[in-house]
């Protein structure tokens, strides 16, 4: 092997890991499928409602339970509403809930995890205790409890505010559903993020390669930048992808059970629940939201797996 065989890189490659990871990600077919679907979902959630020909609320009682056609690609439901418009709006519901839940739980989780991992000792013991307690709360139970205890007074208060002030903001109580659903989800979903961060900080701080870098006289700031962060960020990115998918499915489940986002605001969950009543007669009413939910779930899991493989060089072949 001569010196010319494989030329040394000439330029400084700060982001060589990110670049390599990206190359691995796009070399993975399933991950590409997941990525494209997820990107499409976000696009639809953001712009879809402006592009649909029908309003998701407008009923057409003359055109109830129509099978898919050129006018209504996914057909209409039992109130004659265009199912495609509702599925599209449902994606917005899912994405809003998903993003809010994940960002809130990430913020809480990062804070708690960093607290425990960095300070250790009693603080850490408290964080671990809190994580254990929180993880033992069943999410469905919490959402139901919040729905029956917090929601009615909040809605009443908003109604009273509207009557007293006439401010339009208080009139639309539908936001209460969103806030309560993602609020309660964030309250119980943060431990996973906290665990990841805490574990990463604890383990990386004691890693031999950090010691080896210190032994070379590499300054601390560089060690944090090049050794600690890259080692911690992979699991977080994977977590975000998995948690987004999970939160959207949970939103649908809660809405399906009637404790999430409620009609008339469309959610895939409440559409499925509506569809269940008449699916023997009109299967398309159930088919569209159910298929979309299934596809989104699969897309996130493909993307999550792909990210996991791409960001973890130990698994590269």
């Amino acid at each position: 092997m001569t010196d010319q065989a494989i030329p040394l890189q000439q330029e400084e490659k700060q982001f060589s890991l990110a670049k390599d990871a990206f190359i691995r990600l796009i070399a993975n077919r399933l991950a590409i499928v997941g990525m494209v679907l997820v990107a499409f979902l976000f696009f639809v959630a953001i712009f879809g409602p402006y592009l649909t020909p029908y309003d998701f609320l407008s009923q057409d009682l003359m055109a109830r339970n129509q099978a898919p056609s050129w006018q209504h690609w996914f057909g209409t439901d039992d109130l004659g509403r265009d199912i495609m418009s509702r599925v599209i709006y449902g994606s917005r519901t899912a994405v809003i809930v998903g993003f809010s839940t994940v960002s809130f739980s990430l913020v809480i989780g990062l804070f708690m995890g960093a607290l425990g991992g960095y300070f250790g000792g009693k603080v850490d013991a408290f964080v671990v205790w809190l994580i254990d307690i929180t993880m033992s709360i069943p999410s469905l139970l919490l959402v139901i409890v919040i729905n029956v205890s917090l929601k009615p007074p909040l809605v009443n208060w908003m109604d009273a505010q509207f009557l007293a002030t006439g401010n339009e903001f208080y009139r639309n109580t539908i936001w209460v559903d969103f806030v309560l659903v993602f609020g309660s989800l964030a309250l119980i979903k943060w431990p996973k993020a906290a665990r990841i961060i805490r574990g990463q900080i604890l383990s990386i701080r004691n890693k031999n390669y950090v010691l080896a870098a210190e032994a070379l006289g590499v300054p601390t700031s560089k060690i944090v930048r090049r050794y600690v962060i890259p080692n911690a960020i992979g699991p977080i990115i994977v977590y975000i992808s998995a948690a987004l998918g999970e939160a959207m499915v949970l939103e649908s489940s809660f809405s399906f059970l009637g404790v999430g986002v409620r009609p008339p605001i469309p959610s895939w969950g409440n559409m499925i629940s509506d569809g269940l009543r008449i699916w023997q007669l009109y299967p398309h009413v159930l088919a569209a939201p159910a298929a979309v939910l299934a596809i989104v779930t699969i897309a996130f899991s493909f993307l999550g797996d792909g990210l996991n493989d791409a960001l973890n060089p130990r698994q590269w072949k």
Binding site: K13, K207, N208, Y209, A215, P230
Partner: peptide, 28 residues
């Protein structure tokens, strides 16, 4: 730090964990 970087070299017990898995050998 600069003495570590210029006068003293360390070799550790466990070579399996002494290299950062996220960096190329050369970079490290």
């Amino acid at each position: 730090n600069s003495i570590r970087g210029s006068k003293v070299g360390m070799i550790f017990q466990d070579p399996m964990t002494s290299l950062n898995p996220f960096m190329k050998i050369g970079d490290q």
